[in-house]
Design a protein around this nucleic acid. Structure first.
Lengths: 188, 188
DNA sequence: GTGGATTTGTCGTTTATACAACACATTTAA
DNA sequence: TTAAATGTGTTGTATAAACGACAAATCCAC
């Protein structure tokens, strides 16, 4: 929270790079996208790319994280309690995100994408648990967040594999068991 | 032609400024647009504005010139001869441009706008006359260009004041008298 | 395999932009 | 009329971005 606000040039350039990457990934596979492709599209110098990102995998990571967060934040941070409704909207956001990815061409990077989604979920769950429990920091909350993120992500995999019902209904089936675990903490 | 190509940052920033100005001028009058309005919209620093433009009038001038040139270049530089067809399309471009301006709010700056249009016309006519006559430079061509630019612009004023016919037909009425003057030069 | 071409990642230097501060002009309200 | 607020234009300094050059890695045709 104490971060002095970042230089507008940095924000502009990062956005240019990310947008270009997302645009390019509609047209070709990740493995065929070069740094030069991206920087040409973004109309910035190639060296500038390396000022902001380690390499193209770093960009993939950050770009996907951002897109996912856009999907998530919008739905969640109004109703900040970790209730049934929140789980439903988070789950919906994940399935939406994965659907949007399937239009793009990141074949062969499913595992990377899975990790990115899970890590972001973990961060969000931890934040919400912290808010809900009013503790400064808590190892058990962290573990809870880890388990929730793996669990929810797993559920989304299972949903894509087999389910015919819409995501909202699907997640309702397992929410009760999740909520009992949470309720233990959320009484104070 | 020998200009070493300009820094991409400059092109980006100028475009940001011009686009912001054009967008803002759809919403309010020129006299109510401040530099801060423009730079906020363009997400650049206010000081950077003064790196590219003298003041807001300089911006008005350059922005309008550019928009006008976009209208003109597209129509003309294919058929590069200064024939009946060329006059018609130039005239059409001018009337289009003025129509697009009437949507924006530059009341009280008609004279400035008139001058800008006329100056651009003069440049274009001179270029075309030069090409047509294969001379290195010629004072009489320059004067011809001046007269043509005033004349055509005057015609557009007259057309807006009174005419009910479309611009293409309107200009055809006066083309013959113009062309005789031109024909003297264009035989070589 | 070998060799040429493309791509990657880094570096030093130059230049454009951000920013804060300033004096001055213009507008607005009391 | 004055005082406060807002807008203009400039300056010095810090930093991000452009650029060209480079070695190393990777790709690809033969």
């Amino acid at each position: 929270m104490t971060q002095s606000k970042t230089d507008p040039r940095v924000l502009r350039t990062r956005k240019l790079i990310m947008d270009s990457f997302i645009k390019l990934s509609e047209g070709k596979e990740f493995k065929d996208i070069t740094i030069k492709d991206i920087t040409s599209e973004a109309m910035i110098n190639r060296a500038t790319f390396y000022y902001h990102f380690e390499d193209i995998y770093d960009l993939l990571e950050k770009a996907l994280s951002e897109v996912l967060l856009v999907n998530l934040d919008y739905d969640i941070y109004q109703n900040d309690a970790l209730n049934e409704e929140a789980f439903a909207s988070i789950f919906k956001a994940i399935t939406n995100f994965q659907k949007s990815l399937s239009n793009r061409c990141h074949r062969g990077y499913k595992d990377t994408i899975a990790r990115i989604i899970r890590e972001q979920l973990e961060i969000i769950f931890y934040k919400m648990l912290l808010k809900q429990n009013r503790t400064e920091e808590d190892e058990s909350l962290k573990i809870t967040a880890v388990m929730l993120s793996w669990g929810i992500y797993g559920a989304s995999v299972e949903w894509r594999r087999s389910s015919k019902v819409p995501p909202e209904e699907f997640i309702k089936l397992v929410i009760p068991s999740i909520m009992y675990g949470i309720d233990i903490e959320s009484e104070n």
